[in-house]
Amino acid sequence: MNAMTDLGLYRHLDEMAPWNDRLQVLEVIGVSDEAPDVKTFTFRSDNQTWFRYRPGQFVTLELPTTEGPMMRTYTLSSSPSRPFSIAVTVKAQAGSLGTRWMFDNLKPGVHVKAYGPAGDFSLHSHPAAKYLFISAGSGVTPMMSMLRWLNDCAPWTDVGFVNCARKPEEIIFRKELELLGSRMPGLTLGFMIEERSSREGWFGHMGRIDAIRLPLLAPDFREREIFCCGPDPFMRAVRQMLEAAGFDMANYHQESFAAPAVEEIPAPFGSPAEGGPAKSGPAEGGIEVPAEAATPIRFSLSDIDAECVAGQTVLQTARASGVRIPAACELGLCGTCKVKKVSGTVEMSHNGGILDHEIDDGFILACCSKPLTAIEIDA
């Protein structure tokens, strides 16, 4: 029987379990053009499960290229208010190998592995009476996820939506945004382009967002919770503009996959709260290990015993031992390399890629965790 006509597909949500990224993969069910070199890929679970996430979060796709698996992180443009599928909207740049591979190979029926969702860039983490979403280029995707959720669940919300693009035809989701503008009474749209196009006329704002244009697009921006996403130079300019305008930066949030300029190293996971990590001697859940000795690591699922040399991370040791742990950013941001620590103590210096309750449950990020004692990992 054709999968699309199989009556088994049509199940109530309470009859389905949430998607588990460690057990199931995604199936492509749709590919659509959004703008020049921009496509939306829509997926469903291969095991009839539903998707639970916060609008604005991201997933990591494992692309099976001929050169080997390629990990790429993409923000979800879909809304969790429609939990039977998820979508990513991606722009193919000249040197973007992963996205170009997706354009050439992802068709309906193709299966890919994915990890997540993850990330804290969501209005659910920062509830407010009024919002301002500022984006440029494909940075519109988390804003679209949040706006779609608001349209489905709280359409009266006061939202200013500012999107910048190079040309009118490069405004991603323009038609849908204009439709939402006619349906959501509290939504105010502001588009800004840098140059005119021969393909269509333009009578809106032109140039780049600055201290003069921002008050025209959002006169009360100082009263709003602001979310910003786009190229790093764009986000730096917005941040500097808001700081100069006296905006309370506690109400400013931006999405970025770049490494932070300064990393704060938290107390080692599993070590005493005071006095810092013990370099030698007995530690909770582990055995006594001299400070300079290689540290034993047991990869239980792979049935491999390895030794982590001083300064190496769990991920580096896994690779050297032939144990595969998926990893994308390797900066402690994306959460793809999250694994369960069964026993032992590690020092973990991450950048938001893991939640407090996950740490409490024994999970670590392999890319930024260094063992302080002998440890056992579910990998």
Rank of each mutant, 00 (worst) to 15 (best):
R208D: 05
L61I: 01
A318F: 12
I171P: 06
E358N: 02
L216Q: 13
Q93L: 15
A87E: 02
R22S: 05
Y252A: 05
S321D: 09
C153D: 03
T317P: 08
A92V: 08
V339H: 05
L179K: 04
M249L: 12
F234I: 08
I377P: 01
P142E: 13
N351F: 02
A129P: 05
W149Q: 05
W156M: 14
R324T: 15
Q48F: 11
A165I: 07
R222I: 03
I304M: 05
P268N: 10
Q48P: 02
N151V: 10
N251I: 14
S280D: 14
F299G: 03
L365V: 09
F227C: 08
E62Y: 09
Q312T: 11
S197Y: 15
R298F: 09
P117H: 05
A273V: 10
V346P: 04
Q316P: 06
V110Y: 13
S96L: 12
F269I: 12
S96Q: 06
A273W: 10
P266G: 02
T49W: 08
P83S: 14
V289C: 07
R100W: 08
P142R: 12
F363M: 00
E170W: 11
D210K: 02
S280R: 08
N163Q: 15
N20V: 10
H12I: 10
D46I: 14
T188L: 07
V323C: 00
P268I: 00
L123D: 00
M16P: 00
G344K: 09
L147F: 08
G98D: 08
E330Q: 12
E62K: 10
A291N: 11
D104P: 00
E195Q: 10
A258N: 15
S280M: 05
F299V: 12
P233S: 08
P215L: 04
I193D: 02
A320G: 13
A128S: 10
G8H: 13
L150H: 04
A310T: 15
A327M: 06
Q254M: 13
T75Y: 09
G311Q: 14
C308V: 13
E223N: 08
F191Q: 04
L301A: 12
R148I: 02
T66A: 09
M192L: 14
P326H: 12
E243A: 09
R82F: 14
L97R: 12
F191V: 05
V25N: 06
V38M: 02
I359Y: 06
D6H: 04
P296F: 12
K167L: 07
A87V: 00
F363E: 01
D210Q: 05
M70E: 04
G68I: 07
